[in-house]
Simulated scan of single mutants.
Amino acid sequence: MRLSTVILPIHRWAEGQKIWRQAEDLGFHAAYAYDHLSWRSFRDGPWFGAIPTLTAAATVTRRMRLGTLVTSPNFRHPVTLAKELISLDDISGGRLTLGIGAGGTGFDATALGQEPWPPRERADRLAEFVPLLDRLLTEDSVSYEGDFYSAHEARNIPGCVQRPRLPFAVAATGPRGLRLAARYGQAWVTTGDPRLFENGTPEQSVQALRGQVEKLGAACEATGRAVSALDKILLTGFTPDRGRPLESLDAFVDFAGRHQELGFTEIVIHWPIPDSDFAADEKVFERIALEAPAQLA
């Protein structure tokens, strides 16, 4: 079981770089940034771009993997994104993972002046976005004309440091997204069942996640791929447990162990932010980072 963290891009770099260095010092497998233009209760405060933040983080860390959790088509285009990802993969020395999903109806969905896309269109766009991005990251020159995205002799030389390309972690719970994860993903990401967040129980959440893992297995089987070939990532903080797993080392080990039994290979916890939904005792957080992986080995 790997333990990773999400560091929200809310800090000016003079302060933010200290957090990214500390995350590596604590031994986290990876540190991710949300790829949004703004997000929920943080909308009216500082919020920096994910790709520049990860680029800066790549220069102050050496071992820890870096990534987005997650990027979406809401304000990204495959051609320009591919160029940025190849550059970041090079700067990080091949430590980049792209978390990618369909996005939602939050602030990103309207920031460019468009109306929010309905769920079907978000799924349609992701189904076109991911295969095109796969080509852009593995081929020297790509031309493509689709329903939503186009590319004309888009050059991406020399390509990724990681071969054949940097890994995709596809966030999905529906059948179309799971098929994308099965075909193109090196990992799969979930936050659980959002319908259970307010009134569900931890036991119901575990059952829902078990069902998601089973559906992922079926999608992999349909593509002729073993589900064991994909890492399975749980982004915490959005299940009925909320922040309780971070209340103590024992509470976290119990939480992570129950999800490890479902087949999850990586648990992601939010770096503590005082006076927010992600508030946590920093000393407990550090102890979890330092001691939990060995207990879950």
Rank of each mutant, 00 (worst) to 15 (best):
P245H: 09
L246A: 07
I269A: 00
D250Y: 12
W271P: 03
T236E: 03
F264I: 02
F264S: 02
R244K: 15
F255M: 06
T265Y: 02
F238S: 12
L234W: 04
G263F: 02
A251F: 07
G263V: 02
F255E: 03
P272Y: 07
E261Y: 12
I273M: 07
Q260R: 15
Q260T: 12
D241S: 13
I269L: 08
P274T: 09
V253S: 00
L235A: 11
V253D: 00
T236F: 05
T239C: 07
T239A: 09
L234R: 02
D254I: 09
P245D: 03
E247C: 12
E266L: 07
D254K: 15
I269R: 00
D254E: 15
I267E: 05
D241P: 04
T236P: 03
R242D: 11
L249D: 06
L262G: 03
S248H: 07
S248N: 05
D241M: 06
E261I: 13
V268M: 02
L234F: 07
I273E: 10
G263K: 02
T265G: 00
H259I: 02
T265F: 02
G257Q: 12
L235V: 15
D254C: 08
I267N: 04
R258K: 15
F252V: 02
F238K: 09
A256L: 05
Q260G: 14
L246D: 01
V268K: 01
R242I: 14
D241H: 13
I267Q: 02
I267C: 08
T265A: 06
